[in-house]
Design a protein around this nucleic acid. Structure first.
Lengths: 175, 175
DNA sequence: GCCTCCATGTAATTGGTTACATGATTCT
DNA sequence: AGAATCATGTAACCAATTACATGGAGGC
């Protein structure tokens, strides 16, 4: 139940509304665990019913702000400590890769070049976030951790960009 | 509909049974698109009903061998050409990373060391497959493509192993 | 005779996506 | 006045996991 724990983890940092959570799952967490508001709002209701979070405030337009309860904080930590990570990863781009031999060589090559370009653009996007002067990545434990997680994104994308280029070169002299 | 196209792609290479497909989704494709037999058998029925595959043989223990039809072959190619890849990736290990600041530093460090070790072991596993003398990676277009896809696994895992080590070092002098 | 692997399927539940539905506030 | 953004929710559908269920063939 990763969505559940993702929400708990975000609320353990600071109180947020469903809308705030939706934006977090759509920006910083989008590359590891995307989630939409239609999933988040019902889960907030369940987490409240289970006593792991509670509403701690309200705002304009019916905004409801939630925070973790002590039980909720304990549950995230328990999850991190005791639940073994589910290492199943689903990546449609790479699945397609397995079947590229079904296309004419030049089309396959062109698709891999598109992949390389996409990953390079992602690296640039991450690097721009890191270089953003308005963020102090040493300010809090959460910020330091976030800096580390951005680094994982940079390195994975860079590896995939270089891999895609390597594949194109390899196909060049071995069609 | 990635499962559907994954099955079509595998059957485009050569005829297989549901059991064969299950093993493929559990070995070579496991790292990009895991799928279990309980998903595969109903999908084979749907693909048959849609005229994209057909049963071309049978074997002991009720084994049914399927192959793509011309329409099926055309559909995989159409998918590769026209459907933009869904780039949403879900990785629970990395999601957990975002919340490691909730653990005492030494526990967080130890978790990252476990990650590094796991990724290094995966790299070794892939490298053993590549080094397996009984496989000729230049024999067919499909084999050449598979070699390229294994390389993506090696490079991504290596990047993550090195990232995890980098994170531990970073936490060392900046707790 | 027993164990392992091969081989196929269904059912119940959970998780996730897409579409539907509504409305307040703020900015220009 | 109109557009963009903030803000919440539900419903229908599709995809995936886990559990249930069964049995044949081959090796030892």
């Amino acid at each position: 139940m990763s969505l559940r724990h993702g929400i708990l983890g975000l609320l353990a940092e600071r109180p947020r509304s469903g809308y705030d959570l939706t934006r977090a799952f759509d920006s910083s967490l989008a590359d590891v665990w995307p989630a939409s508001h239609s999933q988040i709002y019902p889960e907030l209701a369940r987490l409240t019913a289970d006593g792991l979070i509670e509403q701690v405030g309200e705002g304009p337009r019916g905004r409801k702000v939630f925070a973790t309860t002590d039980a909720g904080d304990a549950e995230v930590v328990r999850w991190l400590r005791d639940d073994p990570p589910n290492r199943a990863v689903r990546d449609e781009s790479l699945l397609r890769g397995f079947f590229l031999w079904l296309l004419p060589t030049d089309e396959a090559r062109s698709q891999l070049e598109t992949e390389a370009a996409w990953h390079r653009a992602e690296v640039a996007r991450y690097e721009a976030v890191v270089a953003d002067g308005s963020i102090d990545w040493t300010a809090t434990p959460a910020a330091r951790t976030q800096r580390i997680m951005i680094e994982s994104g940079i390195r994975v994308r860079r590896a995939l960009a270089e891999w895609a280029k390597w594949s194109v070169d390899r196909m060049e002299h071995d069609p």
